[in-house]
Nucleic acid binder design. Structure first.
Lengths: 109, 109
DNA sequence: TCCATCTACTTAGTATTATTATGTAGAAGT
DNA sequence: ACTTCTACATAATAATACTAAGTAGATGGA
């Protein structure tokens, strides 16, 4: 799907939070997960800026670990603030998605 | 619902397109429709910037008509380009919404 | 040894968008 | 005159995804 970037604003960060919440992981792997999820055009630079923002906003804990096949990885886990933020994200998403779908359906009646 | 603004980016314009597509209408009324739809915090300034953008991008036809209870209104209708844009919007929305929900559901299993 | 490739992270700058703040102005009632 | 409701315009701001360019470790082949 082409040019989703504006529509991803506000939701991509939430997706990253969700991915981290599932399992401790690192940037490069998160990119792969997003890609295989269907967001094929999401690229490293985008995810790393989000991760740095999460770090700056103190939503994640970070542990650096060596890799056997490349440079060391920064592993992320959600802290309490991060989990709270994730809940807020889903609450907002459910609200907006329901309203938008409501608008969409009314047109098909 | 508080502070949805970042999540509205990329979708609010689509909502405005959909509202116009239903029925020829004008800015002030569109604000009311969005409010009653549930987007309570969307305010005039926001919608007018969107409408000016739609006009600049030649997605709408405009007709100015006098009002009996105030200053003249600018009535908007979608032209062919506008309808095409609306279709694209829904295509993108369906794609993103399905992917996000997929991500969400996988976590609940 | 040198080079390419894959892995992995960083950062400065850009574009787009919703929002805020402020202003203008018509009509109607008091 | 003053207020209120209707109606539109616009400059400035904030947040975010994205682009581009770079650094660097490890591996394997030429």
């Amino acid at each position: 799907m082409e040019n989703l970037t504006e529509m991803l604003k506000g939701v991509l960060e939430g997706c990253v939070l969700e991915i981290i919440d599932r399992k401790e992981t690192y940037g490069y792997e998160i990119v792969r997960r997003l890609n295989s999820l269907g967001f094929a055009d999401v690229v490293e630079g985008t995810v790393y800026t989000i991760l740095l923002r999460l770090e700056k906003n103190k939503l994640v804990d970070i542990q650096k670990k060596p890799s056997e096949i490349g440079p060391p990885r920064k592993f992320y886990t959600l802290n309490n603030a991060g989990r709270k933020q994730l809940q807020t994200f889903w609450r907002k998403w459910d609200f907006i998605a329901s309203k938008i779908n409501e608008l969409k359906m009314k047109g098909e009646s």
